[in-house]
Each structure stands twice: as C-alpha cells, then as structure tokens.
Design a binder for these strands. Structure first.
Lengths: 189, 189
DNA sequence: TTGACAAGTGTACGAACGTACACCTACTAT
DNA sequence: ATAGTAGGTGTACGTTCGTACACTTGTCAA
C-alpha cells in the first residue's frame, strides 16, 4: 500500500468515526501488526504537513481533511485534476461562515432579486447585524413587512431596491429595521 | 453556569482544538474540580441528544456542532431565532457535497449563464461525471473548447444552450465531451 | 427542623494511549 | 559478497483516559 492510500484511509476513518484514529487503529487500517510502524507512518505524514499533533500528542485533522479541490475557472479551460491544483483548496464551512454564532440560513421565495442572480428557491446565508452599508443585500422589515432587498444609502436618503424592474424601490415611511445582511448564496441543483 | 453555556463551551473547544475535550478538560471548561462532575454533565447532554459516545467511550461531536440554523423563508417573515427553528438545521458540507471524491470547485467567468442566475465571479461545485441528463448544467468541451452550459437532449439532437440571449446554442460538430455536472452554486458577497 | 435529592469533591482502578528501544527482515548500492 | 538502510515486529513503560464509589455540600419542600 502506498502512503497515499494510507492517508486516504485515515481521512476515511475520520469521516466515518468523526474522530482521528489512535495509533492502534492506524496500524489496523494500514495492516501493520505493530503500533510503532503506525507511529513512523504518522511522523512521515506530519513532516509532509498532512497530519498534525497537538501539545498532548493527539492527532488532529488538517485542512487536507476538509478541503474541496479548487480547479480554477471554467472558461479558462478545465484543468486536469491530476495536475497540480491552480488555487488553494478550501473548506466550505470556513469559506462561507465567518461568524458562526450569528449566521443563519434562509430560504428565498419570490423573484424580487432575480436580476442580482438570487432566484426563488435559493438559500442565503445571513449574518445577524443591524447596520449595513450601501449596496449590501439585507433582510429588513419595512413598515411591518419582511423583505430581501438591496440597501441604498445616499446621505439621509435610505431605500430598499429590488433587483427586478417589476418592483419599485421601497422608501420606508415609518421604520426600517435591518435584521441581517446576506453574506453568501447557495443553490442546489 | 447553565447547561447551555457548558455545551457552548464544549462546542467552542471543539472548534478551537479540532477534537473533543476529555473529561478532565470538560471539568476545566466548566470550572469543576472533579472529573466525575464532568462525566455527569456529559451524561445529561447525551440523554438530551446533544453529545454522543462511540463504542470505546470517546466523545463524538453531533450534528449540533456543525449545523447552521435554518430559519425558513424570507418573505414568510423573519422568524425569531429564539423561537424554535422552523426547519432542521444542517451542515453545509453534508448539504452540498454528496460525493466528496469527485467534487471540485470551479470559478465562473463570463455571463453566458446569467439568466439561470449564474453570474461571473460565482463558484460552482461540480461532480466529475461523463453522462448528464437533459436540462442539467454541465462543464463540457465542444470542439476543443471548455464551456459551462445547459445540456439539451432531445432524441438524437444534443446541444449546449447558454442562458443568455446574446449567445446562440452550440451544436457540437465533432465531439461533445462532458467533464462534470454542476450540483450547486456558491456566491460570496 | 428535617429529610430528600441534586450537584460537586476526592480518590481509586483497569484499560488504552502515545512513545521508546532492541530486534528482525528485505532491499539497495557499492 | 557485504555493509547500510528503510520499514515492520514485539515488548515495555509511564501517562492519561473513561468509569466507579463513597462522601460532602447546598437547596427546597414538607
């Protein structure tokens, strides 16, 4: 078995068991009869930056465990995954969620933001925040009603603009309460 | 300290250390002087379904560790996060990636799919696959060039259609090689 | 006031952990 | 042929793990 396969087995174990294997378990995965052989294997993987240990000697997963290969752009040509990746691979969770405590998912219904590429059925990740900048897409309550719109702020003038010609801009009469700011969009096919 | 805070501390530990704490460490987090108090706390959390143990007695993270609260839909009104969540919370990774081995990220450039809500700068998660169904969005090589288009299949007729009136459908003269199928879309603001 | 009960303390114990060392193969280069 | 070396085996050791039990403390209802 190659070292690649050993590493793949460790990653698989982590996904199946939601924890890192012990040296005993690594030995089993690699079909060694001795823990020490597993320890040497692990040390090689650590030197290669593919595994990590914490201060107490426990094994930790590295970014290689979570990341999805990032291949570059489509029109630039579809690169061969066997080649070196063009961009750093990345963990989805880390990539999309900055402030976990304040982040929520929200279904989008309605076509009011369709020209901004937000379609009915999409999911937005929003961060709870009461203040937003000009141009950000916000979840807001205007005169008692909740909507998803782009915030326009020009001096004292504040309005919420849909990205769809069918809907006119909303200028709040009484109150404009911003509940959250859209920080990313997800769509499943 | 409430049990909520204890649980939050354990989740924080998991995020900071990429592993579950030992009972000793839980005792420290909860400011107990005895491991046994931590064990009792953990048992309560296990009964509540917030923690798990595997066959070897090790603690495991549950779905509560990964999930992002899902609040429902925007136009239906913005629900109060303090209330019960409307939909099951979910882990992004689990939600978006089915087949981890074959999944890659790809940057989108160009506006050829803009009417399908795929804008330049977006990222698509694609699954490597050579066969696609009618209507799926595919990464394909037609006559030597890579593109992102919607696949049209009607009997023997096969073509690639852009979602933008500026671009005419592409009917492959020689070969149509499908490299991957788009399974989800991500956009960061 | 008293009794019941939940919650935290301190100590103990076997099992499993990470680590170390001597030994034993194969293979490689000289 | 032979010496060196990388990789696997078996055993050993101190530490930490999860678990258990008896004890103390604080709280609340009767």
């Amino acid at each position: 078995m190659t070292i690649e396969q050993h590493f793949a087995n460790i990653v698989s174990f982590y996904y199946a068991n939601r924890r890192m294997p012990s040296y005993q378990e690594i030995a089993k995965l690699a079909q060694f009869r001795s823990k020490f052989a597993a320890l040497k294997l692990v040390n090689h993987l650590i030197e290669a930056g593919r595994l990590q240990k914490d201060a107490t000697g426990r094994l930790l997963p590295t970014r290689h465990f979570f990341e999805i290969p990032w291949l570059g752009s489509v029109v630039a040509g579809y690169p061969n995954p066997a080649e070196e990746e063009l961009l750093d691979p990345i963990s989805l969770e880390e990539f999309l969620v900055k402030n976990k405590q304040a982040t929520y998912m929200l279904n989008v219904t309605g076509d009011s933001m369709i020209d901004a590429g937000i379609m009915p059925g999409d999911i937005v990740l929003v961060e709870r925040r009461e203040h937003a900048k000009h141009g950000e897409i916000v979840v807001a309550q205007v005169d008692g009603e909740w909507t998803l719109k782009r915030l326009y702020k020009r001096g004292r003038k504040v309005s919420l603009e849909a990205a769809n010609k069918k809907y006119p801009p909303i200028v709040p009469k009484e109150e404009l309460r911003i509940a959250a700011v859209v920080c990313s969009l997800i769509r499943k096919y």
